[in-house]
Design a protein around this nucleic acid. Structure first.
Lengths: 243, 243
DNA sequence: CAGTGGTCTAGACCACGGG
DNA sequence: CCGTGGTCTAGACCACTGG
């Protein structure tokens, strides 16, 4: 017998749950152990293997559930909107404001946005969910002369993109962006509801108005890599799959 | 006592190994167990935690070693060269040819390179290392009218970038590229020397001559995410950190 | 061959979340 | 309260690598 029972069990369950709607509850460790006649350690290893493959999500005290990553394409052509991207991917977005205040712009932010340091700007801290699963968190800076009143608006409209479009009359577009995969520290892990040391995306995006070119905001957000299948594209050549 | 001994042990060892040169051998599971007076399971969990944080690399039958990710920036401005990028990061690159043959160009590749499908092109399959650690593998397509003789040259010069520069007189530059984080299947995992299901970068890059704009090659490579700290940048605005 | 990490058992207690 | 996943012990065998 192959020494890796947990792998066989994982492959079998992976095939079984393929196609199930995200969030479906699946068998727990003890149930797996009984069903396959193995100890709890092997059953646990199988479920952890599925979690490593990002096929399931496990929550202590609750259970194990099927999971799905949303597709998130970052490109010069696509609009920088979490809500829209999530919806396009077939999931339900939700964003909650953790804090919203006016503060002097830090020097590094001012450098990117082309303002004098200490210019008043909104500092927005928000957390985003896909199908009620925590998926993203981070900071967003918006100069006050782009939007005067943000605190109230952002409570009503979940989307910063919609606010910039409808209240500032802009057409937000990514002017520059950068993404990398990092390991989360305790604070970021707490906001994302994951374990410290888990890897997550760090995405920075400088957005401007597509028509006037005016810089609108700088966002610096973390995204769980098991919740977001991020693809990022450089260059302008469209991938023309012509026969 | 906090129930998570392995976390404390991991944090302690993480601090101890900080700054050690990559590849340094560190204590194994049994040694950790004795030192901290814990069972092997807890000692093992601590070392696995460090592996999860990409601070160590573990090899069955050999031991546990300090590890370091090289920085790999993909941007329109930086030259698309594995060798150069690795050297810039302070590590030693090596690339070995797994296979090199002339074959008719697949339709999707032809579409991106702007050739008729079935045009003769080199199909190169190579594996790359950083400090003798497997880090990347993948396929590269080069039309024969860009370089006639590739098989011999690529054995001598490790770098495709150097060949295109010195033999084709080109200045390779990324015209378009895309990166995403995927989970490895058995084949890719074998080439990268990791466990199937581990996550790895999938990087596609379409390169052209910076001067003439002529398309030179298409590369589709996998990179171990625990060996490469990939950052990818879109847009042209330089991140000017002005005070 | 000895030592490493990989898998597994049987059993225990704990932390957490929902009824 | 119960069931979930999270941690841990003690012990065993296996797979792999190197000398």
């Amino acid at each position: 017998m192959a020494a890796r029972k947990f792998r066989e069990i994982a492959d079998l369950i992976a095939a079984e749950i393929d196609g199930l709607p995200p969030g479906t509850r699946i068998a727990g460790e003890s149930e797996i152990g009984e069903r396959f006649g193995v100890g709890r350690a092997a059953a646990r290893a199988a479920l952890q293997e599925l979690q490593r493959r990002m096929l399931v999500r496990r929550v202590q005290g609750v259970g194990t559930f099927t999971a799905r990553r949303i597709d998130y394409l970052i490109s010069g052509h696509r609009a920088p909107s979490w809500s829209q991207t999530v919806r396009d991917s077939g999931s339900v977005p939700r964003t909650v404001v953790r804090s919203c205040a006016v503060a002097p712009m830090p020097a590094d932010v001012a450098g990117l946005l082309g303002y004098e340091p200490s210019t008043p700007c909104h500092l927005l801290q928000r957390r985003s969910f896909t199908d009620e699963v925590p998926a993203a968190w981070g900071l967003e800076w918006v100069p006050v002369d782009v939007i005067g009143e943000l605190a109230i608006a952002v409570q009503h409209f979940g989307s910063l993109h919609v606010i910039l479009r409808d209240m500032a009359g802009a057409e937000p577009q990514r002017a520059w962006s950068r993404a990398s995969l990092e390991t989360t520290d305790d604070h970021v892990a707490a906001e994302l509801g994951c374990t410290p040391g888990d890897s997550a995306w760090l995405v920075e995006s400088l957005n401007h108005d597509a028509r006037s070119g005016r810089l609108l905001c700088l966002t610096r957000r973390w995204m769980r890599s098991d919740a977001v299948r991020l693809t990022i594209e450089t260059g302008s050549a469209p991938p023309s799959h012509a026969p």
